[in-house]
């Protein structure tokens, strides 16, 4: 990092390079406190045998215990294991929820022959709503915005009846929409309720 123009007398102290775990993003030595310890260990073993030995060989483990009493250590290990199971369950549930969540495309009648299309549920598939709205706006040459619906969730509202085209776009996976599975699309039509009815 020191450039050639820099004076050798410069006081700058170079930064320490810290290796972070790829799985849990902690510095390697803190993996044992994370919620994915076994996975962290596996990935490190694959990547860097030496470092793995440094942290998880028998003598390293023995040294690590330090001032902690044996009961405390076993308790800690138990805790970590429990935490791991919990985290796994949580991840599973999140994945299931993701697979089950639906993208709702709603055609809303605004004024007799005028419609708006609202797209709801894209955020479950890691779509940046703002970017998606921009993409829709560009594609259809209409206004498209991210708004909160009455339930307080974000949805994209596109001006004009473009529901069919939106479905097509999601099926083709254009741009930011590429991770959205097409089986989860639901099309709904909503008529404006008359006041006197």
């Amino acid at each position: 990092m020191a450039s050639t123009t820099e004076q050798p007398t410069s006081q700058a102290i170079p930064p320490i390079k810290v290796r972070y775990c790829e799985v849990c993003t902690f510095p390697l030595e803190y993996c044992e406190f994370g919620s994915s310890f076994t996975k962290c260990k596996e990935s490190l073993l694959e990547e860097d045998q030496d470092l793995y030995d440094k942290f998880y060989s028998e003598e390293a483990l023995a040294k690590k215990i330090g001032t902690l009493s044996v009961e405390d250590q076993t308790k800690l290990e138990k805790d970590t294991a429990a935490k791991e199971v919990k985290a796994e369950k949580k991840a599973d549930a999140a994945l299931k929820k993701k697979l089950a969540s639906q993208v709702t495309i709603k055609r809303i009648e605004r004024n007799k022959r005028k419609f708006v299309t609202s797209v709801h549920g894209l955020e479950a598939f890691d779509v940046d709503l703002k970017k998606a709205a921009k993409q829709f706006a560009q594609k259809f040459a209409t206004g498209a915005s991210v708004t909160k619906n009455p339930q307080g969730q974000d949805e994209i509202v596109i001006q004009g009846d473009v529901s069919a085209d939106v479905v097509e776009m999601i099926e083709d996976g254009v741009g930011v929409l590429k991770n959205v599975p097409k089986d989860n699309i639901v099309e709904v039509e909503e008529k404006k309720k008359k006041g006197g009815d």
Binding site: I13, P15, I16, V18, P27, G66, T67, L76
Partner: peptide
């Protein structure tokens, strides 16, 4: 992590 000396340091035990 990059510049550990910038703040005064204390240490906690493993527990």
């Amino acid at each position: 992590h990059k510049y550990p000396f910038i703040l005064p340091m204390v240490r906690i035990d493993r527990g």
